[in-house]
Amino acid sequence: MTDVPGYLAAHIQERLAAVAHELGIRVDVHGDVVYLRGEVVTEERRRAVEDAARGAAEGHRIRNEVSVVSAREPEGEETLS
Results as ranks from 00 to 15, higher is better:
residue 53 A to W: 01
residue 43 E to N: 11
residue 45 R to L: 05
residue 32 D to N: 13
residue 28 D to W: 05
residue 34 V to N: 09
residue 45 R to H: 09
residue 57 A to S: 12
residue 31 G to K: 12
residue 37 R to G: 05
residue 30 H to E: 13
residue 55 G to M: 07
residue 25 I to S: 03
residue 47 R to H: 12
residue 54 R to M: 09
residue 38 G to M: 06
residue 31 G to M: 13
residue 32 D to V: 11
residue 34 V to D: 03
residue 34 V to P: 00
residue 26 R to E: 15
residue 49 V to K: 04
residue 51 D to I: 09
residue 46 R to G: 05
residue 57 A to Y: 01
residue 35 Y to K: 04
residue 38 G to A: 13
residue 44 E to A: 15
residue 26 R to F: 07
residue 55 G to N: 06
residue 26 R to N: 14
residue 25 I to P: 00
residue 56 A to T: 02
residue 49 V to T: 07
residue 48 A to S: 13
residue 41 V to K: 09
residue 39 E to K: 09
residue 39 E to D: 10
residue 46 R to K: 14
residue 26 R to P: 02
residue 36 L to H: 02
residue 36 L to S: 00
residue 57 A to G: 01
residue 27 V to T: 07
residue 55 G to W: 07
residue 57 A to T: 02
residue 41 V to A: 15
residue 27 V to N: 03
residue 33 V to W: 05
residue 46 R to T: 08
residue 35 Y to V: 10
residue 46 R to S: 06
residue 33 V to C: 08
residue 32 D to F: 08
residue 30 H to K: 12
residue 27 V to D: 03
residue 53 A to H: 03
residue 25 I to N: 00
residue 46 R to M: 10
residue 38 G to K: 04
residue 40 V to K: 03
residue 33 V to S: 06
residue 48 A to E: 15
residue 40 V to W: 03
residue 54 R to N: 05
residue 37 R to A: 12
residue 49 V to I: 13
residue 45 R to E: 14
residue 39 E to F: 04
residue 25 I to Q: 01
residue 33 V to K: 11
residue 36 L to E: 01
residue 45 R to K: 14
residue 25 I to K: 00
residue 42 T to I: 15
residue 29 V to E: 11
residue 34 V to S: 06
residue 29 V to R: 09
residue 50 E to D: 10
residue 42 T to A: 14
residue 41 V to W: 08
residue 49 V to E: 03
residue 28 D to K: 11
residue 39 E to A: 08
residue 33 V to A: 13
residue 35 Y to F: 11
residue 49 V to P: 03
residue 29 V to A: 14
residue 37 R to V: 03
residue 51 D to M: 06
